[in-house]
């Protein structure tokens, strides 16, 4: 958790207080302030309204605002916690927090479940997995025979869909992830542990005095 001994945190009009955000995440106050610098630069890249829209999100991630992709859209939707079509600073920090090395496995497991439950039915369905698999194959220009794709899906559901109802529920997903921990690898960005030294380009001098524990 962010640890703070301070009397003077910055305020960002229209955005959540960095001390509050630090108290709810693994980021320290100065790291939240550094993330605000990053957020500012992304949120003004197309429309300077203090919010990140989908175009700005894609531009920041891929340096290409036209790069439509199934996964990129889904990640944006998950960052857009308030379902407003834009990401505000609080959404941005809390969503990135899930990728922090110190975030709990439960949070990471839940995020991946929602990522793959594209239709928000409460289940990861075979058709969704197939759609994502095909998207991945197209992206990487890998070619697999249709039969091979079905075999992979059969095997995946045999392993994960324990009750055999043709879809993967949340508990089934948790159990599957415990048996296959590498599935959460995409959910940890190691450099979030110390963003202020790893990415000095968007760090400024914090007004907050912090003592790490």
């Amino acid at each position: 958790m962010g640890c703070l001994h301070s009397t003077a945190a910055r305020e960002y009009p229209g955005h959540e207080n960095p001390v509050k955000l630090a108290s709810e995440t693994a980021f320290s106050v100065s790291e939240v302030e550094a993330l605000y610098e990053l957020f500012k630069s992304i949120s003004c890249s197309v429309v300077d309204d203090g919010l990140i829209n989908k175009e700005e999100f894609q531009l920041a991630l891929f340096k290409n605002r036209k790069k439509e992709n199934l996964f990129a859209n889904r990640i944006f939707d998950l960052f857009d916690v308030k379902r407003k079509g834009v990401i505000d600073f609080g959404d941005f920090v809390r969503s990135l927090n899930v990728f922090h090395p110190n975030a709990s496995l439960e949070e990471k497991t839940d995020f991946t479940f929602r990522l793959y439950d594209m239709d928000c039915t409460g289940y990861i369905e075979r058709q969704e997995v197939k759609q994502m698999l095909i998207a991945l194959l197209c992206e990487s220009e890998m070619k697999l025979a249709d039969d091979t794709i079905e075999v992979i899906l059969d095997q995946t559901f045999e392993d994960a869909d324990v009750d055999g109802d043709g879809k993967i529920g949340k508990t089934e997903w948790s159990d599957f992830v415990i048996k296959n921990p590498s599935l959460l690898k995409i959910m940890t960005l190691p450099y979030l542990r110390d963003i202020t030294t790893t990415f000095p380009s968007f760090v400024f001098n914090s007004e907050v005095d912090e003592i790490a524990t």
Binding site: L38, A60, F62, I75, T156, K179, P181, I195, T198
Partner: peptide
């Protein structure tokens, strides 16, 4: 800590290879 189940590669391992799930780009402003 367990290692992954010794089955053939599962669909989610493949899906996790998507570059669109890598958020590193955010920090390369």
């Amino acid at each position: 800590k367990g290692s992954d189940s010794p089955t053939i590669i599962n669909a989610f391992q493949l899906i996790g290879m998507s570059s669109f799930l890598d958020l590193s780009g955010f920090f390369e402003q």
